[in-house]
Design a binder for these strands. Structure first.
Lengths: 345, 345
DNA sequence: ATCCAAAATGTAAGCGCTTTCATAGACCAT
DNA sequence: ATGGTCTATGAAAGCGCTTACATTTTGGAT
């Protein structure tokens, strides 16, 4: 593999000139520029980014720390982030620790985190569903350009890209109420997750505001998975509550609900209405298409990448990109899984 | 950030000794080892992997070139590959070029490919659905440790991890025949994709072998997407073919078929049987659960990662890992979307 | 011709590691 | 004591780039 020195010899100039031709062409005479260009193409020279990183004290690399790609929620975020980084000439080193909610995970995540730092990444974008908030805050404080998508923690608040789960919960409740539902159940996510709590609180509060009660007997816990959703639905049906609608705190569980209904010949939305959360890719391909609360994943991801870039040492002297939004608002996406009881056909 | 020199000074030894303590502890006296360990922990030293890579002429990094993470097919492969690389102390740099089947994509992919090479990756794992075979072969030949998952190309054959699509097609046909189906339709993937052709050929040949014809009037083309599946199904229904079963060449299209049937109150598998391909994550959460042909994605990914590691310069002197399998066989996963016409209940 | 600022190029010192080679002890057998 | 073999360490030369600084060249303006 040809190196800078080879090109220099071939072109009859010094390595400095070649380097300049590559990085600041305006500093070198057009004719030399041409000579160098020729030398480069005949030698098939490819710049060694490792050496460059070392010399420039900047890796132009961002770390991506995540649980898994196998998630309708994570995947589009990661896609978008990588695209943006690439557009700015940055690289992405990815660590995926696996999708476990156990203690072993903490250890894996910390190891991955360290190895990213050792690798001289200029920022780390954390996208982990199962990460202890205290732990996360500590980590973020340890690495001042690290940012998180999803959680919001005390100290590193300004580096957390979040969506307003509470408002999302309210939105779901509002829609159900508008459509004439009064007898409603909820299938919540894991009890120890903040986003789940917030979605639940928003939902409950909004219901209360309209004089509708959501007793704990009508709240079932799933684990954000399809299976969890159908199991929760099963329990709900067994208790014999006569609800007309259920709010599943994410789309995966909503799919579980739909499946369970299907196998019991409960028609949606005629017999039961269902509203989800996330607007994940499956929401359009359920039957019927799922009414849900969307998170602006793409924009969130763009914000994260932009913020990461702004905080990167390699870009310290470039003009910063537009200040990214930190806090996003969810939106109601009305499709066909909620019946209008108020205005019956 | 403390550097090796700082640690050396603190411990009262040379940098060589510190380096050895880190990389070949058996070469240094236990007492010095201890001194160094102390110096490391009091200084909070973290090794600079960039400098290390440069000095060792080995980046311990593998490039991952893919279209997107948002795919039930790609995501688990990527997950698994990264996990294995990590276990061997390797890093993964990921480039995702986006999910477009157009010519612009070729340009993007080539750029990403180059940038991975510049970054001194020791191997590249290519996982791109839309890549021209000739183009791919050239690329693979240019970088002798690059490997591909999915395609099989002429020259770089030994570095292509594939599944036998033809056999998969046969399997689907066999199952349908065993279950008593004779009047069968097929929804194929994009015509220009080899895997799709092979799945189709296997299916058709096996059918023929049993005296069943698959005229082109019973073959519909989708584009491997849910929407494509339902559109193809729509056309099929409009032509009024009296088929009892359809083979969708991937699970996404099978989902489309199921949806279309649902909205027309065609019961599966009572009125129509459907078999998919891939055994993607959604196959268990359709209603009814989808009978399909599984690809051993996890094993394929492991093979890819292992092969990549074996071919890496950084591991040239380590003993090679077990020789990975290159060619995988698909398997029938019988669930509940195919009715048994032979032995009616 | 002369001088000077600006433009173009070269020289060489790093970046933070690894590793070869040389050196110095330590230990044992003669 | 002498030599030889090991083991433990250090000195220093890179790895392939970038860049501060020094030097040379250029092209007016005088």
């Amino acid at each position: 593999m040809a190196k800078l020195q080879d090109v220099a010899t071939l072109a009859g100039v010094s390595t400095a000139t070649v380097s300049r031709t590559l990085n600041n062409p305006e500093l070198v005479d057009p004719s030399t520029r041409q000579k160098v260009a020729n030398a480069i193409s005949t030698s098939g020279y490819q710049r060694n980014e490792t050496a460059r990183s070392l010399a420039m004290r900047s890796s132009r690399t961002i770390g991506l720390l995540t649980d898994t790609f196998s998630s309708n929620y994570f995947a589009p975020i990661l896609d978008e982030a990588i695209k943006i980084l690439h557009d700015f000439g940055y690289y992405a080193i990815v660590e995926a620790t696996g999708n476990h909610a156990n203690h072993k995970n903490v250890e894996l995540q910390k190891r991955a985190w360290r190895s990213l730092i050792n690798r001289q990444v200029e920022s780390i974008i954390v996208l982990c569903a199962f990460m202890d908030d205290r732990e996360l805050d500590e980590m973020l404080m340890e690495f001042p350009s690290a940012i998180n998508i999803g959680h919001s923690v005390e100290q590193a608040k300004s580096r957390c890209i979040t969506v307003d789960h509470y408002t999302g919960g309210q939105l779901a409740a509002q829609h159900l109420i508008e459509m004439g539902h009064r007898n409603i159940a909820m299938i919540s996510g894991p009890a120890d997750r903040l986003d789940s709590q917030q979605r639940g609180d928003g939902f409950k509060d909004e219901l209360n505001k309209h004089g509708i009660d959501l007793p704990s007997s009508k709240v079932y816990t799933g684990n954000y998975s399809v299976l969890g959703g159908s199991q929760a639905m099963q329990k709900l049906l067994e208790t014999g509550h006569e609800v007309t609608a259920v709010f599943a705190q994410n789309d995966d569980m909503a799919v579980g609900v739909i499946n369970e209904c299907f196998s019991r010949s409960i028609e949606i939305p005629k017999d039961l209405s269902i509203i989800g959360f996330d607007d994940s890719s499956m929401a359009t391909s359920t039957m019927p298409p799922l009414t849900t609360i969307s998170q602006p994943l793409k924009q969130m991801s763009q914000s994260a990448a932009t913020l990461a870039l702004n905080l990167s040492v390699g870009r310290k002297n470039d003009k910063p990109l537009a200040k990214p939004t930190i806090h996003f608002l969810p939106e109601l996406i009305a499709r066909q899984s909620v019946a209008n009881l108020a205005k019956p056909v």
